[in-house]
Simulated assay, not measured.
Amino acid sequence: MSDLQLRRTLLYVPGNMPSMLQNIPIFQCDGVIIDLEDAVPLSEKDAARILVRRFLDTYPQRNKEILIRINPLDSKWGIEDLRAVLPALPDGIRLPKADTPEIVERLDTLLTEFEEELGIEIGRFKILPSIESAAGVINSIKIARCSQRVFALAFGAEDYTASLEIERTKTGEELFHARTRVIWAARAAGIQAIDSIFADVGDMEGLRRETELIKRLGFTGKSLVNPRQIEVVHEVFAPKREEIDYALQVVEAIQKAREMGTGVISLGGKMVDAPVVKRALRVLKTARAHNLIDMEIDDEVIYGQE
């Protein structure tokens, strides 16, 4: 069974705040997004990218994924952001305003050029496109498939609701269609889906409810704006003990079915076949990534031996 890279929590860290940058190694999130875009005033853009570069140069032994949210490529800062931070080797770029596959392809080309200049492996830098508008939602399937560098799609609810000229609510009905479109696109492309921030850092119960909702919809993680939100999101995404126990029972049942020469078997009065086994393996894979189990399982459980 291949290892699953957890991206439950991607924490935004303003690129112009040295105190926050210095704390990145101790944050317990799966990854950070160092922000050079919305969090940085226009007057501090140049200073912020220099600060981020210096920080990354002093942080070579990294314990989490590091992404940089650059300014839009069609702004006067975007390419300068790339030129400043890529030599410090972040893991990838979070691309704002990813409205079309063409803008992602343009970033792909630029990253290849920088990799060639730096003499590093082509394809090293990953891309996380941020779907933040009606156009982005409509084009999300093409965006998800337009580059091998794209490892996930991110949904930006604040900019999306602004583009529709509607209010974002805590209940989130206005986001349902866009969220499902982003998830469909990501799953169709075989990549992960990262949900938007929950802006009210004082409302932990609201954060929990929203995280439970987006987990049910199919998202694999969430962007965060405050380190205090990390624990709640991790708790929600961790498989529950009863889920793990049932998944183990499913695996045991299907292994017995293989011994009997059949692809289906009954467990507790319910049929266990390949789709049920796939869901069980997903639970076990996630549980292993959370260090809740240490067992190894591969696809032979589903398909049997040749």
Rank of each mutant, 00 (worst) to 15 (best):
61 Q>H: 08
42 L>W: 12
67 L>K: 06
52 V>Y: 03
67 L>W: 12
52 V>R: 06
72 P>K: 13
68 I>K: 02
83 R>D: 10
50 I>V: 15
70 I>T: 13
66 I>P: 04
84 A>G: 02
59 Y>M: 03
87 P>N: 12
84 A>F: 11
45 K>P: 07
53 R>L: 02
50 I>W: 09
88 A>V: 03
88 A>P: 01
48 A>S: 11
70 I>R: 04
63 N>A: 01
76 K>E: 15
65 E>C: 02
79 I>R: 14
58 T>H: 08
83 R>N: 12
54 R>D: 11
66 I>S: 04
55 F>G: 00
62 R>A: 01
45 K>Q: 09
72 P>I: 12
62 R>W: 05
55 F>T: 05
66 I>H: 07
56 L>E: 03
50 I>Q: 14
69 R>M: 04
78 G>S: 12
47 A>I: 10
69 R>A: 01
51 L>T: 14
55 F>W: 10
49 R>E: 09
76 K>S: 11
57 D>Y: 09
76 K>L: 10
82 L>C: 05
79 I>K: 09
63 N>H: 06
84 A>W: 13
69 R>I: 06
76 K>A: 09
56 L>Q: 02
86 L>D: 05
55 F>H: 07
45 K>A: 03
79 I>L: 09
44 E>Y: 08
77 W>G: 00
45 K>I: 12
80 E>V: 04
48 A>K: 11
40 V>Y: 10
63 N>M: 03
54 R>W: 01
73 L>D: 10
50 I>R: 14
71 N>Y: 11
80 E>M: 12
65 E>W: 04
63 N>V: 03
77 W>Y: 15
64 K>Q: 14
68 I>G: 00
85 V>H: 09
88 A>E: 07
54 R>S: 05
59 Y>R: 07
87 P>G: 08
59 Y>Q: 06
41 P>R: 13
42 L>Q: 14
78 G>W: 12
76 K>Y: 11
68 I>N: 03
65 E>G: 01
55 F>I: 08
83 R>E: 14
